[in-house]
Design a protein around this nucleic acid. Structure first.
Lengths: 346, 346
DNA sequence: CTGAAAGCGCTTACAG
DNA sequence: CTGAAAGCGCTTACAG
């Protein structure tokens, strides 16, 4: 008889009703046991658990969320620039650790700087009725998320601030970190410091450029267009541009690169020309093996683990009902000297 | 009146019922419009769409999956070793691209080689009623997934095969790739070739060790325990072990490292001793900047993009009803010479 | 082409 | 401590 039940037609999943029938109790009693309500007679608990195991019963999250008062899906969204980029991936993992501790699942997504994809993926999160979203947005207008917020879904912005929307935010200290790096180069006598930056639409790319300008201005220098290249996205693009600068009439004596792929591209260009002991470079964002190159690459390191943890802590506090005013957390950067940034200007 | 509806109490989400009321049609007509059924009068379509927009209506996936015949949740699970590791992250992204093209969301998770976490996360996928799962398992017994398969959930194994379970599998050609690398070292005159490997419980770690042994045996050499270290997981552990080998009585003249963190650790140990032009090394799995080190690091490159794409293609075919016998795909590795593996034995 | 009724798997609200 | 009824938001199955 037992076999008859457990070997039902393939494709069948046991429901609470099936468990109730096998355990000879009511549906509601099964529900109580599955939800660990303490008011069930121990013997019934045992019978229900046995039946549930026998039928390989797994509760249906969707169905329970549907009827539940709080409507919780035990799912959050983590939408970042590109989960295959180590910065995004590290944030994702830090969030995942906190989520798993709460038995919360994570829907992940990558925007690749495409605002349409941001719209698609946030709408998808809405249809999945996630309990909250951590987002590093690609777009520059986030008013469309207001409705979701009103429906009770908290958003925490990481790496980039919300525009035209009030929401919690966790950012690196990009501008000051960049200024510090460029001051360091200035202090070594560099006057012709090139800048390589990511898309100007990206908030952090702007901040890092501003920091670069801040430091030059503070030193009485003027940023010159011929040493500035922005809207770079890839190693190859950075390598070509940096090479162009180095081969030009008045080559830079130092580089500041606003993103790790750009740093790597510039390092390639410098090494191709055997200038690695003559031209200085400091990069924003650390990367694996930066210390094994010769010279080691000096960087402004971000702290994606802390960014992810802070964001998750904010998100779960909101999910738990915290309705205090939105917060803005700044995570400090760390300047790590390894050699490439300590080359003096001849 | 419109405002009265759209400015309902905060926390309220519009339902089909609300849309139907505003558009003055039945619930069923709204359902038809939302699901793009063609048999609705154009004027009603317009009215419904307007009402839906006005109320910021987003369909509830969970509710529709509940009643739907096929029970599709439009969600898949992608459970890998560690999403912050570039190999896993690249597979994840490749799957994500194929998923987004089908408007399917991705629940991501990392096992960190913890079989309990595998159990937790697969159970969680079951409770979310995902349509399918791509998995790089941590455990060595996958019989427990049989019930899910019977319930109609396809599993595709990547990087590691299923044990005691029949399922689609996508693997790198680890054994042959490793053998080729070690043959290459043997051909350069190396006889004392050290092996650094990951946990022996990991299938690929076994395969790579086997490949190492295959090549030695084929050359008439015998693997010697004093040059073999397995169960290594981190850069630091590999560095310490490799350093110990190099400082020992009969140091190796070459290394074969079965994983990229181990390769990096060995490279550190070699460079610390200024032996980078004397001791050869070949690593399994490519890594960013391997070409920028001096010498560049020769590797057996895997192809995680192809692995991810093949796995997703298999999974979606199964979801679409393909019930042919399970498939096993082998993705070829590529031997990339960059210098470190071409150092001859003195 | 449109709609009223039933039901997916579960929790709520209530009665005993 | 236990259970029968109603209902979450949607789709199915059916009637018009």
């Amino acid at each position: 008889m037992v076999d008859e039940v457990s070997s039902r037609s393939p494709g069948h999943r046991a429901t609470m009703k099936d468990v109730a029938a096998l355990a000879r109790v009511s549906l509601k009693t099964v529900s109580r046991v599955i939800n660990d309500e303490p008011t069930v007679h121990p013997e019934l608990v045992l019978r229900v658990r046995r039946a549930a195991n026998q039928l390989h019963y797994q509760p249906n999250f969707g169905a329970s969320a549907l009827r539940r008062r709080d409507g919780r899906s035990s799912t959050i969204g983590v939408l970042l620039e590109d989960l295959s980029n180590p910065f995004s991936a590290t944030i994702y993992r830090a969030v995942e650790e906190m989520a798993i501790a709460r038995s919360v699942s994570v829907l992940g997504g990558s925007f690749d700087e495409d605002p349409r994809r941001e719209l698609e993926l946030t709408a998808s999160m809405s249809r999945h009725r996630v309990d909250g979203v951590i987002i590093a947005p690609a777009s520059r207008d986030h008013q469309y998320l207001r409705q979701e917020q009103l429906a009770g879904v908290p958003f925490v912005f990481v790496d980039r601030p919300p525009y035209l929307l009030d929401a919690d935010t966790v950012l690196s200290n990009s501008r000051e970190g960049s200024a510090q790096a460029v001051e360091h180069l200035v202090a070594l006598g560099h006057r012709r410091i090139a800048f390589l930056g990511d898309l100007v639409t990206i908030h952090t790319a702007q901040e890092r450029f501003q920091g670069y300008c801040d430091a030059l201005t503070a030193a009485g220098l003027t940023p010159v267009d011929s040493l500035i290249s922005r809207n770079l996205r890839t190693i190859d693009a950075a390598e070509i541009v940096a090479g162009g600068f180095l081969d030009g009439e008045n080559p830079p004596t130092a580089f500041f690169a606003g993103q790790n792929l750009l740093t790597i591209g510039a390092v390639r260009a410098i090494r191709d020309r055997r200038l690695q002991q003559r031209v200085a470079i400091v990069g924003f964002d650390d990367f694996l093996l930066a210390d094994l190159l010769e010279p080691g690459v000096t960087v402004v390191a971000q702290d994606p683990v802390t960014i992810g943890r802070e964001a998750a802590a904010l998100l779960f506090a909101r999910i738990d009902g915290d309705d205090s005013p939105s917060q803005k957390k700044i995570v400090e950067t760390t300047f790590i000297t390894r050699g490439s940034g300590e080359i003096q200007c001849r």
